[in-house]
Design a protein around this nucleic acid. Structure first.
Length: 204
DNA sequence: TGTCCGATTGGT
DNA sequence: CCAATCGGACAG
């Protein structure tokens, strides 16, 4: 993908990332999966985003950087979450990648997770980072580079893309109901979430 | 320097 | 429903 393609608002970019292939080359080999679920975080107004209120710290710095780079954060001291930085430099927006359909390097992913069910290898933001070995070392990487990158894989029509509220941001009183979670309709690789996050319809 | 806490996950 | 586990953020 061209770097110019990422200079959209996170809410515009998120659904466009569905169908793209997220690839990570490591010394162990290449692991890749098709993005099937993503969420938009649109700071500084979005009170679910760490950049809410324009908070600019070492942790959120990548969100303020140029689009098309990796923003990785650690959660609960044990999980990493991968985001694609959106919007022009200075505007802190990012798209959280929540699930992939494994496409390449399945054996590698299985080894990293200790699981063999392909439906469970990349079904969640923390798990897909483990499967692709994405962590703090990939913070800020240019996604048009050689190590961690996105490629076109397939497309989805608006009618195939479901929307819902974002998962586990109930603390965000102002923006928790925004329909900024996007996922592929009837796709078994989408992460399992509580009923309250069920589809509210499609883009079609 | 001390306290608080999470954009998750997996097991009870 | 609940614990795991830890560095960043912020108050003092």
């Amino acid at each position: 993908m061209n770097s110019a393609a990422f200079a959209l608002s996170a809410a515009e970019l998120a659904p466009l990332l569905l169908g793209k292939l997220l690839c990570h080359r490591t010394p162990q080999g290449l692991a890749a999966g098709m993005i099937v679920e993503a969420e938009a975080y649109c700071g500084p107004e979005d009170d679910a985003a760490p950049s809410f209120g324009g908070r600019r710290t070492a942790r959120t710095e990548a969100m303020f950087g140029p689009p098309g780079h990796a923003y990785v954060f650690r959660l609960y001291g044990m999980h990493s979450c991968f985001n694609v930085v959106a919007a022009p430099e200075g505007s802190p927006q990012a798209v959280l990648i929540r699930a992939l359909e494994p496409v390449e390097g399945l054996a590698l992913m299985e080894r990293r997770l200790g699981l063999t069910d392909p439906l469970q290898l990349c079904s969640g933001p923390g798990k897909l980072c483990r499967a692709l070995a994405i962590g703090p070392a990939q913070y800020g990487l240019d996604l048009c580079g050689e190590e961690l990158f996105l490629t076109d894989f397939r497309g989805f029509s608006p009618a195939e893309i479901c929307v819902s509220p974002r998962v586990n941001v109930d603390y965000a009183l102002g923006y928790r109901d925004r329909l900024w979670r996007f996922f592929v309709k009837d796709c078994p690789y989408v992460s399992r979430v509580p009923r309250r996050y069920a589809s509210r319809g499609t883009l079609g």
